[in-house]
Write a protein that binds this DNA or RNA. Structure first.
Lengths: 149, 149
DNA sequence: TTGGGTGCAAAGGCTTTGCATGTGA
DNA sequence: TCACATGCAAAGCCTTTGCACCCAA
């Protein structure tokens, strides 16, 4: 995807980062696996196929910068790995796509969106005087596929 | 609190665990700090005041066992530490008290309960065919106190 | 008595960091 | 040119594990 490559170069430039092969490659790996949540090691392995010289340290450093800029999102499933997915929505909207359904049987992760959460936030603000800036919601259970079996 | 000590001894026995000074001490430390979420190291430090001989490995092992039995709950704030709080409600109800408000300013953690979440779960089940077994909700923002400043 | 529990130290495993080298702007 | 980025290896840091000793039941 040469065009997505160009897109990522601009994205990097817009955020004041130098454009390097490694950074673009990492963004492309994440972009080519929408809905997938990759660990640092997985990203490393994928990028290595194209650029065998990359070091794991670069992956970690890049991930950190991209995460701070909200170009990618973190997901922690408490299994010892932190996972990352590309954030296609951009900075402003970062607070509304951290909702995940995690299937305990097949391990698949599904995203979902629901305005009930916003209603919930409003209620929290009212009853507890707490101003919600961001949230993280994880629902564990069994997905449709696994239930069908 | 001698009576809580006795209570914890029974709790351990009921769960098929041997009653040891260390285990009771750890439960008491967590119990004496309701609403507090302690890291393994913090638990270790507190217990050490009474029982200087305890080892950090025992703390980790005890925490793990207690957590598996749902006598204590985990909380991961993604800051490199896993925190624990006592679960006063007991096993059956484990799936309904993982809701936390985390103040980004003072770091305080508040628990909350809301049935909107259950409505949300029902909706997820309907629309996505996902059967929710457990959930974890974290809302980050500013608490009442900090907003008042 | 005896199998589970504990303490200590070493090992694990993910992530970060120091430093010399490389490179985009 | 030169500040930033990278690779490599070492170090960090939280947590787990091996093993001999201990102790609750």
């Amino acid at each position: 995807m040469p065009e997505s490559g160009e897109q990522f170069k601009n994205l990097l430039r817009q955020n004041g980062l130098k454009v390097t092969t490694q950074r673009v490659a990492i963004l492309e790996v994440l972009n080519n696996r929408p809905g997938k949540h990759l660990t640092a090691e997985e990203i490393y392995d994928y990028v290595k196929k194209k650029y065998p010289d990359i070091g794991i340290a670069t992956v970690y450093r890049t991930i950190q910068v991209l995460s701070e800029l909200s170009l990618i999102d973190k997901l922690n499933l408490d299994d010892g790995y932190v996972r990352y997915e590309i954030n296609k929505k951009g900075k402003e909207d970062t607070c509304h796509h951290h909702h995940h359904l995690i299937c305990l049987e097949c391990g698949n992760i599904y995203a979902f969106q629901d305005d009930l959460l916003e209603a919930l936030e409003k209620r929290i603000a009212d009853t507890m005087g707490f101003e919600v800036a961001n949230h993280e919601v994880k629902l564990y259970g069994r997905c449709k596929k696994c239930r069908g079996k």
